[in-house]
Amino acid sequence: MGKRALITIFLILITTTFASAQAEMADGMRSNGKIYVVVAVLATIFAGIFAYLIILDRKISKAEKEK
């Protein structure tokens, strides 16, 4: 009974020390600089989308001016 209680307390203490560790974040990606690849990819996608919107906007403005 005493042994069981000791083992239980031991296990609880072990698990709580791990639980108090910081939440996992993408620190690995940040430390090896790969996060910038992610930023570059997304920035390219959005630049492409906005370029398309700007081209559309110009086309429509031209069509409106001709009227």
């Binding site: 910081q22 939440a23 974040m25 993408a26 992610v38 997304l42 920035a43 959005f46 630049a47 906005f50």
Partner: peptide, 22 residues
């Protein structure tokens, strides 16, 4: 603003929370 959101959104610090993470 959207450009800032993409770049800052990925690079600026955020709270470190369980379950949500990044």
């Amino acid at each position: 603003l959207v450009g800032f959101t993409v770049i800052g959104g990925l690079l600026m610090p955020v709270p470190r929370l369980e379950i949500l993470n990044e």
